[in-house]
Design a protein around this nucleic acid. Structure first.
Length: 204
DNA sequence: TTATGCTTTCCTGATT
DNA sequence: AAATCAGGAAAGCATA
């Protein structure tokens, strides 16, 4: 079983010897006992993972390889290749896909470094590791949610974006930019409460 | 190469 | 008093 660690993502790590991929964050996705469809960044089809599989079904548990190691475990999907020496159990997740299989053209991901903020929030709300401890529904029918741990949430967002300097001040500024685009809306009179707007598709 | 989208950063000031 | 909220301005970064 994977450790319940919000910061563990699959990451291609150093891009210097990767052709066809731009940044490590391109390939981040949540690990753990999460349905494959919950992958919020990287299409599971590109990893050769079926929609009904869970990440734990296709990746070996950390105990199956002792750190450090430098080669791809044999039971990894062939599309994944290990590129970084793991030095600890928490560092097990540095892998990259085969660039020849990854074809990002036409994916429609505009200017998103890995993941959009509102999608990140939506995904946290679906994840019992974070809902209701970090973020929770205020009224799911009305698409309103409450940020429970603002500071921790910002840290989490920062870790997802590879930005250790993220703060709630900055995260919330990005959220306010969503107002105009109707992706989010403020909930009057309630601090730390927002609602998803019509432009936020919660069914995806 | 440029335009655009999505932030990130910094800021001033208001509100709770 | 400390958090939070509101936006303007500008810069950064990736994609189309």
């Amino acid at each position: 079983m994977y450790p319940v660690d919000p910061n563990i993502d699959i990451d291609i790590g150093d891009k210097s010897n990767v052709s066809g991929l731009q940044r490590s964050q391109d390939l981040q996705m949540p690990a753990g006992d999460i349905p494959a469809r919950e992958c919020d960044v990287f299409p599971m089809s590109e990893l050769g993972i079926q929609a009904d599989q869970k990440i734990n079904d296709v990746l070996p548990s950390p105990s199956q390889y002792s750190a450090p190691f430098t080669s791809c475990p044999s039971n990894f999907p062939t599309q994944l290749k290990h590129i970084k020496t793991c030095t600890s159990a928490s560092d097990y997740s540095y892998f990259r896909p085969n660039p020849t299989i990854s074809n990002r053209t036409g994916s429609g991901r505009q200017g998103t470094r890995g993941c959009r903020l509102w999608e990140f929030l939506r995904n946290l709300l679906r994840d019992s590791r974070f809902n209701p401890s970090y973020i929770c529904w205020e009224n799911e029918a009305e698409r309103t949610f409450r940020i429970v741990k603002s500071k921790e949430l910002a840290t989490l967002w920062g870790s997802k974006k590879g930005n250790a300097k993220m703060t709630y001040e900055k995260l919330s500024r990005a959220m306010r930019y969503y107002y105009k685009r109707k992706v989010l809306a403020p909930v009057l009179g309630k601090r730390l409460v927002y609602s998803f707007g019509p432009r936020a598709d919660l069914t995806l």
